[in-house]
């Protein structure tokens, strides 16, 4: 079973990438202790019978794992969310893609810790790059927000399967998360300088959406 809510997110995204979706949009919203996550893809979608079976742990999409008859990802997430008193939703239709998400109260005694959102986002960006999927992540915490898109990041740092590019993206997303948290303790320029191996100005003035 997954240890953090951010693991649930990676699980849902991994399903979307494996479904061969050309584009995936992820929303991660925190309001107070409440957490809402939605992963929407424009993949092939599922008919109603398949959608219902997707929550069956002894079902896996045909062709996904040839010879195997288990698919634990969605059932695990649904069960964990239910245990924490949250809600889980899976909507899909053939040709219309799939949208899967959940909402839970992070203060619930059975809710797992939120986990490492920056790590989860970077992991999803790398997955998307490997799958050839365009990924956009909208992140909101109370009144603050930012968005990252895999194509824009790849244009800035190179392929998101390159460790150097991923290390820079990790630093970038951690910086955006710090800004979300209103965390004033990090000196980003020191961090940036360590990564670049050289001193200097980091560039243009920031915009509120991180672009």
């Amino acid at each position: 079973m997954h240890g953090t809510v951010s693991d649930f997110l990676v699980e849902l995204a991994q399903n979307a990438f494996e479904a061969g979706a050309p584009a995936v949009v992820v929303d991660v919203i925190e309001r107070g202790r409440g957490i809402e996550v939605c992963v929407a893809d424009d993949g092939p979608g599922m008919d109603e019978a398949t959608r219902r079976r997707a929550l069956d742990p002894f079902f896996s999409a045909p062709g996904k794992h040839p010879g195997r008859r288990v698919g634990l990802g969605l059932p695990f997430v649904e069960q964990a969310v239910a245990q924490a008193g949250g809600t889980f939703d899976l909507a899909s239709a053939p040709g219309a893609g799939t949208s899967v998400g959940f909402a839970l109260d992070g203060a619930h005694i059975d809710a797992p810790p939120a986990g490492d959102w920056a790590g989860a986002i970077v992991s999803m960006l790398a997955m998307a790059a490997g799958a050839g999927t365009a990924l956009r992540v909208h992140r909101m915490r109370d009144e603050r927000s930012y968005a990252v898109a895999s194509d824009e990041l790849a244009e800035a740092v190179g392929p998101l399967t390159d460790a150097g590019a991923l290390a820079l993206v990790r630093m970038f997303v951690e910086n955006q998360e710090s800004a979300l948290a209103g965390d004033g303790g990090t000196d980003d320029m020191d961090l940036a300088t360590r990564h670049a191996g050289a001193a200097g100005d980091a560039g243009a003035a920031p915009r509120e959406d991180g672009r």
Binding site: L153, M171, F172, A192, A204
Partner: peptide, 21 residues
């Protein structure tokens, strides 16, 4: 705290390329 932008990221990448070379 300075919030980084995509342009910051491009600049870092360029400096890093020189380091890696």
């Amino acid at each position: 705290m300075k919030k980084l932008t995509l342009q910051d990221l491009r600049d870092l990448r360029e400096r890093k390329k020189a380091e890696i070379a």
